[in-house]
């Protein structure tokens, strides 16, 4: 119990941020019309590509002799980049077609 409490207390700022972000996410999404659901899903998909930062941090902090971390970190950078770049480009392609229409 004490361990859980101290876990909570030590991370209170992050937990605050998490709770606020959850509601922010719900609030931001709730007005999206059905027309834009596919691009929205795709856009959100690109945004969680932010996980790539974790893989970069691994690479920055890895000991140059630690090949386990270097190889897996390298793999993670590629995977994360695919998520980010592919995600944003695909979303942009979808939305490009919408843009013509709105004029």
């Amino acid at each position: 119990m004490e361990e859980i409490l101290s876990l909570f207390y030590e991370n209170r700022e992050f937990i605050f941020l998490i709770v606020v972000s959850i509601f922010l996410g719900i609030e931001v999404i709730s007005n999206v019309p059905a027309v834009l659901h596919t691009p929205l899903m795709s856009g959100a998909n690109a945004i969680h590509g932010v996980v790539i930062i974790g893989s970069i941090i691994i690479m920055l902090q890895a000991d140059p002799g630690n090949y386990y971390a270097l190889i897996l970190g390298f793999l993670a950078v590629i995977l994360g980049t695919l998520n980010v770049v592919g995600g944003f480009v695909v979303t942009n392609r979808m939305l490009e077609m919408f843009k013509k229409k709105s004029k």
Binding site: S21, I22, I26, V28, V32
Partner: peptide
Amino acid sequence: LTGGILVGSAGTIL
């Protein structure tokens, strides 16, 4: 954290 949670909650709502 914010990017992940935003997508996590928005994705759940969707």
